[in-house]
């Protein structure tokens, strides 16, 4: 337990001193800020365009448009940032050899995985919470937010998807070698999941569900009960990823 706390603390120090914390918080802050702004500006830009006499009937932007932008930003750009920031989480230490001293001190290998996952999860949680607060604040400032429903649940789905993604990064990082191996494998697996998402029958056993229906919870088109299966499947996969990572890492040559 002491080793776990010590190594988790080391991970936090690393996040701060290697600028990962700064990057995540600034980018997610911008997502929160730009989403309502883009929602507001897009219709104005479009209506301002000279379309040679054609008249576009563009409805006034709403809070839903702001949230549509927000979810799009987080699930596209946000995930790219997460991949860039965490892609080398284990492979960096393995290729450099910094873990050797630490493991030679008798720190359990499972502790390394769990501590790293904890620190990643905390940073993801902070970044998403920060972005959500900023986004909601600015959306309230610009639009009427009274008809938004299931907001917290929708955000929880997004958070859980991120948590799953982080466990996938850890597993890929343990499986592959090299600096970018973990990153590439994660992208390949994500691509595979996106292809599977094209089959409606498999939609609900795919973690992608949690990142592709967020707006529908807000409009009330979907209710939390609809997401029960995807939530359970994703939690199971996440735990599975971590357990397999630990078992593989225990048998890795160093």
């Amino acid at each position: 337990m002491k080793g776990y706390l010590a190594f988790t603390k080391k991970e936090f120090v690393e996040q701060i001193r290697t600028y990962r914390l700064l990057i995540c918080l600034s980018v997610f802050f911008l997502f929160g800020l730009m989403s309502p702004l883009l929602a507001k500006l897009l219709p104005e830009i479009l209506s301002g365009m000279d379309l040679q006499g054609m008249v576009l009937a563009i409805p006034e932007a709403t809070a839903m448009d702001a949230y549509a932008q927000f979810f799009k930003n987080i699930t596209q750009m946000g995930i790219i940032v997460i991949l860039l920031v965490f892609g080398g989480v284990i492979s960096n230490e393995l290729t450099k050899g910094t873990l050797i001293n630490i493991l030679a001190k008798g720190l359990g290998r499972h502790t390394v995985i769990l501590a790293k996952y904890t620190a990643m999860l905390v940073l993801w949680t902070l970044a998403l919470a920060f972005a959500s607060l900023v986004n909601h604040g600015y959306t309230m400032y610009m639009f009427d937010t009274s008809d938004i429903s299931n907001l917290l649940f929708s955000l929880f789905c997004l958070w859980l998807f991120g948590a799953f993604l982080l466990s996938l990064i850890i597993l890929s990082s343990v499986l592959t070698g090299g600096n970018f191996g973990g990153l590439i494998l994660t992208v390949v697996v994500l691509g595979g999941l996106l292809i599977l998402d094209l089959f409606p029958k498999l939609e609900k056993v795919n973690p992608i569900y949690l990142s592709s229906h967020n707006l529908e919870f807000l409009t009330g088109a979907l209710m939390p009960a609809d997401a029960l299966l995807p939530v359970l499947v994703t939690i199971a996969l996440l735990i599975g990823n971590i357990l397999v990572s630990i078992s593989l890492f225990n048998h890795k040559k160093l």
Binding site: K96, G97, N101, K105, G106, G108
Partner: peptide, 18 residues
């Protein structure tokens, strides 16, 4: 893989990395 015996050992690798 998970050697408890390492608590008795101090190890200096050929090229230690920190």
């Amino acid at each position: 893989g998970n050697s408890k015996t390492n608590r008795y050992i101090g190890y200096l690798p050929d090229v230690p990395e920190f």
